Simulated assay, not measured.
Amino acid sequence: MIRGIRGATTVNENIATDIIDRTRALVLEIIALNQIKASDVASVLVSVTTDLNAAFPAKPIRELAGWSYVPVMCMNEIDVPGGLPRCIRIMLTVNTMIEQEKIIHVYHHEAKKLRPDLLK
């Protein structure tokens, strides 16, 4: 079964190390909570708000052990007025037998405001 697993985080400033560190922390928690193996991942989409351009957030994902062949793509999030600034969003497409309602989506920092209904 193919499932989408979402996550998001924010940074305080457009600083490369912050973007990389926060993305890594988010992805590692998503992997751990959902017991994901790289070989089960079809692809990862990463979007950033237009105020973030200091680093590619795909970098820490590609650096994970065993993840070098997982397709990862970065893109800009739609710039909606009043949207959450300095936000990194992630969508992993994963082969898993976990039921959809048991998937654990992860939101860190200010991104918790995006989907409070999914926080566990």
Rank of each mutant, 00 (worst) to 15 (best):
P60N: 02
H108A: 01
I98R: 04
T96P: 05
M97N: 06
A38I: 10
V44Q: 04
I36G: 09
T50W: 03
I78D: 14
V44L: 03
P57N: 08
T96F: 13
N53K: 08
I19Y: 02
I90E: 03
R3E: 00
A65R: 14
D18H: 10
T49D: 09
A55E: 12
K120W: 11
H109Y: 13
E63V: 12
A25V: 06
V41Y: 00
E13C: 08
M75I: 11
D18W: 13
V70R: 06
V41T: 01
P85M: 02
D117Y: 04
K113L: 10
M97Y: 11
I2G: 05
L28D: 05
L52S: 01
I36H: 01
Y107H: 09
K102W: 11
H105I: 09
Y107D: 13
V41C: 06
A8V: 10
I104W: 06
V72T: 13
H105F: 05
E99A: 09
D79W: 08
T96G: 02
S43Y: 00
K112R: 15
M97E: 10
V80W: 11
N12A: 09
A65E: 15
V72C: 05
V27E: 03
A32G: 13
Y107G: 03
R22H: 13
S47F: 14
I5H: 07
K113E: 13
M73V: 15
H109K: 15
W67P: 06
V41R: 00
N76L: 12
V11I: 01
Q35V: 04
H109N: 14
P85E: 06
K59S: 02
V44W: 06
E101D: 12
R62K: 09
D117L: 07
V70G: 04
E77Y: 11
D117T: 11
H105R: 13
L84N: 13
N76M: 07
A54E: 03
K112Y: 09
A16R: 05
E63L: 02
L114N: 08
T93S: 03
V11G: 00
R6T: 15
R3A: 09
I5D: 07
V106E: 06
H109E: 11
M75F: 10
T96H: 14
N14Q: 08
L114G: 08
V94G: 05
P57S: 06
D51C: 14
S39Y: 01
G4R: 13
C87K: 03
L52W: 03
P57L: 12
R6P: 07
M73G: 00
P57G: 05
L92V: 09
D21G: 11
V46K: 09
S39M: 03
T17M: 04
Q100P: 07
K59A: 08
L118Y: 03
T10Y: 05
M91S: 12
Q100T: 11
V27N: 02
P116F: 14
V11P: 12
R62A: 01
N76D: 10
K113A: 12
L84P: 08
E63Q: 15
N14Y: 03
T49Y: 00
L114P: 00
K59Q: 07
G66H: 01
R62D: 04
I20G: 00
E29I: 04
N76W: 01
I61R: 12
T10C: 10
R3H: 10
E99T: 02
V41A: 01
I98C: 10
R89P: 07
A32R: 08
I103R: 05
G7L: 07
I20N: 02
G82W: 11
V80T: 08
I103D: 05
K120V: 15
I15C: 10
T9E: 12
